[in-house]
Design a protein around this nucleic acid. Structure first.
Lengths: 150, 150
DNA sequence: ATTCATCTTGACGTTTACGTCAACGTAAAC
DNA sequence: GTTTACGTTGACGTAAACGTCAAGATGAAT
């Protein structure tokens, strides 16, 4: 059951990528769709993989890295040593992702702060045409704005 | 006070990039260090910018995107209309980052789950040489593993 | 039978983000 | 004064990730 299949353009439309890109992922070993004559046939599994690929891209990973990640799932019923290696690699990936999460949390935090400062400044200016300059306004609020702006 | 400066190789070592890369960022308008004769002189501000650039890269943004982000800080004391635009752009960036955060949270969640499954499986195997196959083991634990593996 | 839509496989082009020389300037060290 | 260390500007090379034709196969529609 649930043996639904997709053509390449169906998937392309659904995920807003070009068929060319999908074939390219196959060339690079990230997808292995079935064939029906010449045509590629994508199953549920391939769809799931494509989702993984695109999420990986959104997170800034290279196709080679994404391939490594996907290969972790291809353990099948390999030997135990192989699975231990997979486990180790997975844990390393996890650490990298957690680092990235810290990066993004920082970025969000700072950007929120800066957005707020600009917003506040604009509000002040609205009711007081000759309020302090932006630079004075920024000083003492310890934003990244003050560090990066000249 | 705090007018410390850096040479290009100092920064390169500190952040583990090549001088070539730093010059490249300048070519692309992401940095504007001072000069002392021929040589570039990097101040606190430039260092902060370089940090922003590298964090942006770790998050998978292109240099062009990072430049747009940095330019948001270059508002200076521009006209109010300009600052309103900056505010809007910043809020859009914020939305994008929040989307990315959801992506990464998902990825971390799933990877943790999968790591746990593999770990459990290996433990079972350790005390019971002819335990169920990995595929059977995975079934019914609803991991992504089951979807993506063939 | 032929037109049309959709697929296929090359093959070459393009953009991004640097790496890698080459040739030269400058300032301190011997 | 010349070697050494570090800087500079081109200019060309390259890997990744596709885009963009070109030329042909296939199956459904007219």
């Amino acid at each position: 059951m649930s043996d639904k299949t997709y053509t390449i353009t169906e998937l392309a439309h659904e995920f807003e990528v070009t068929p060319r890109a999908i074939r390219f992922y196959e060339d690079k070993g990230l997808l292995h769709p079935g064939r029906q004559g010449m045509m590629r046939v994508y199953a549920r599994r391939d769809r799931a993989r494509l989702q993984l690929i695109l999420r990986g891209k959104r997170l800034g990973f290279s196709l080679a890295e994404i391939r490594e990640m996907i290969d972790l799932y291809d353990v099948g019923d390999g030997r135990i040593e192989q699975m231990k290696l997979t486990l180790k690699r997975s844990q390393e990936r996890l650490s990298a992702l957690e680092q990235q999460k810290r990066d993004i949390d920082d970025a969000i935090h700072q950007l929120r702060q800066d957005v707020r400062i600009i917003d506040d400044f604009l509000k002040v200016k609205e009711r007081n045409r000759d309020a302090p300059s932006f630079k004075e306004f920024v000083q003492g609020r310890g934003a990244q704005l003050a560090e990066v702006a000249e």
